[in-house]
Design a protein around this nucleic acid. Structure first.
Lengths: 138, 138
DNA sequence: TGCATAAATGCAGGTTTATGCATATATGCT
DNA sequence: AGCATATATGCATAAACCTGCATTTATGCA
């Protein structure tokens, strides 16, 4: 019961749905998610860990990267059913399409992909810290 | 999109799931729900209205009673799919079973069924105001 | 018209949640 | 060892949420 509530809570947030939509497309690392959705690194990380917690995603660490993907095998039957329903709900949605589109251009490495760290405490200005823009209906 | 988020939010609460479980069994009025789940009248009313808002329930007013039932006809396809998934998730759950059981003994009328109103401001003591007891896992 | 019953709602409070910022941790490379 | 990169996390704060209490609204009946 409590588990089910947690699952629905995980799905009851726009950003988390957008992330799930991405991972449904293909395996992603944190920095790809943050790029595709233009959200902060900490936000991307937390969202992925939330979706992992409730059992939708599996995590495969590869060197520096945390690779998240849909855990089709380990998922309980009822989780699978909920995920399928969610997928259909996301299918014909403008926002979700453009997110998937943007994912194609996301890169796994490169200068300034993730956080310019504290060490270099000057020049904290251009690193994608926009508040999220509002979106349309489903 | 926003609509989908609202749907999942509606499902991300134990009490609301319990109410939905009841209505999946059969049409209910507010006072039956509050009896079966031992929750306050205002809580029952609000929960039902939430589930109605997102499109799971339809409301049929009959005299004093507000009768809520699953809106199998008016529901969008994606909503139906989500509801089906939820139903399976609720199926084999102790709490949900006993709730359905208690629903059988709920009555639609009788002394003290709902709120003893302000007029009679003495004797506000015995009218089922327990906080909800904790429950088990799914 | 007056009273009783069923449901809905305004308000207040306490709790939970989402998120940015700063920092910590983990890994790899030279 | 030292530095760079990728991810995770503690803390603080603002917003959202849940719920009880009191009251209002709506309906039916005598």
């Amino acid at each position: 019961m409590r588990g089910l509530v947690k699952v629905f809570k995980a799905l009851s947030d726009e950003s988390r749905l957008r992330v799930l939509n991405l991972i449904l497309e293909r395996e992603c690392c944190v920095c790809e998610v943050m790029q595709a959705l233009e959200i902060s690194q900490s936000k991307a990380s937390r969202i992925l860990s939330t979706l992992h917690d409730v059992g939708f995603l599996k995590l495969h660490k590869d060197g520096l990267w945390s690779l998240y993907s849909v855990d089709s095998d380990g998922m309980d039957a009822y989780l699978k059913e909920i995920l399928t329903a969610t997928r259909t709900a996301l299918r014909n949605n403008r926002q979700m399409e453009t997110d998937r589109e943007r994912l194609k251009t996301a890169i796994r490495t490169g200068p300034g992909c993730v956080n310019r760290n504290a060490k270099v405490s000057v020049r904290r200005l251009s690193t994608s810290r926009k508040p999220m823009e509002t979106t349309d209906e489903s």
